[in-house]
Simulated scan of single mutants.
Amino acid sequence: MSGIVESAGRTAGQGAELSEGYAGQVGTLRRALLDAALEVFTERGYSDAGLTEIATRSGIPVGSLFQHYGGKQGLYLALWEEFREEQERRTAATLTVERDRGVDDPVTLFVAGARAYLEGAWDNRRLGRLFAEDDGPSGFDALRRQWDRAWVRRNARLLEVDERRRAGRVRVSVLTTVIGGAARELGDCGDETEAGEIVDEVCGILVHLSVPPG
């Protein structure tokens, strides 16, 4: 009896190790596919990008690409999700640090979050340039508008703006549009110094525009 128990225990342990190893392999495979997709999308645009070329650059068969992402649209949307989540994570982390320091002024917090977002746009500028182009899968524009509306609502809460008042909603929408436009400009910056100047300039504009009239 003890021999069976010991054997089962070893099998279970080996199974866990195999499971962890498999998860690591899958993560590596997906990373390779996404990196290759970003290269091809950036060079050729979404419409002209070919799955065969993406698979070739990643060193992974086309069949595996379909298995993990279902095709070109799935790759594009996975890149978008990665970019969006990283921007939200970076902004949230900055706000946490500021609040832990005792900062509670809505405008100060908003501008700190905007700076984090813009710095992330510079760090991830290849993705930013990709999503700024009017060349994505069917339905992507609607998805981006949905995210933009959620972004405006988050900024309204951060600025403690009464969303029931049209003037307040418009002000937050304008501020959010300024950040988005600056993020697109950062994608074309020549170097980090120029990018830093733009971030500083935009944050100064946001301070001025964020203060409620009167």
Rank of each mutant, 00 (worst) to 15 (best):
A116Y: 01
P137V: 00
V107K: 01
R144H: 13
E197P: 01
R157D: 15
R153I: 11
N124I: 10
A114Q: 09
A142Q: 15
G196K: 01
R149G: 07
G139Q: 09
N124P: 00
A182G: 02
D135A: 07
V170S: 01
V161I: 13
R145D: 14
D141A: 15
R115Y: 03
E185C: 09
R184V: 15
P106V: 08
L127Y: 08
R126Q: 13
R125C: 09
A167Y: 00
A142M: 09
D148Y: 14
D134C: 08
A142K: 14
V107A: 04
L186Q: 04
D134L: 15
Q146S: 14
E192T: 12
A167C: 01
E192R: 12
D162H: 01
G168I: 06
A112C: 05
C189W: 05
R165I: 10
L175S: 04
T176Q: 12
R184C: 10
L109H: 08
G187Y: 07
S173T: 13
E185T: 14
R126W: 06
D141Q: 14
V170K: 00
V172L: 04
I198A: 00
L159Q: 10
P137Q: 04
V178N: 02
L175D: 04
V178E: 09
R115V: 01
G128K: 05
R115D: 07
D191Y: 02
T177C: 07
E192D: 12
G139H: 07
G120H: 03
R145T: 09
R153S: 14
A183C: 05
R169K: 02
L127Q: 11
L127A: 10
G113Y: 03
W147T: 12
G181K: 06
E160N: 14
G120W: 02
F110N: 05
E119P: 02
V107D: 04
A114R: 04
I198E: 07
R169N: 02
I179Q: 11
A142P: 12
E160R: 15
R165N: 10
R153N: 14
E160M: 11
E185P: 00
A150N: 12
L109C: 09
V178M: 11
P137W: 01
G113A: 06
R125M: 11
F131G: 12
Y117K: 07
R164K: 10
A132R: 12
A116R: 03
R157E: 15
G136A: 09
W122Y: 13
P137T: 01
L186S: 03
P106K: 01
L143H: 14
Q146D: 14
Y117A: 11
G180C: 06
R166S: 04
L118W: 03
T176V: 11
F110R: 07
R115Q: 10
G136P: 04
L186R: 06
A116P: 06
Y117V: 06
G196N: 02
L143D: 14
G139D: 10
A132S: 12
E192M: 00
L186Y: 08
A182L: 05
V172A: 01
R129E: 10
T193A: 13
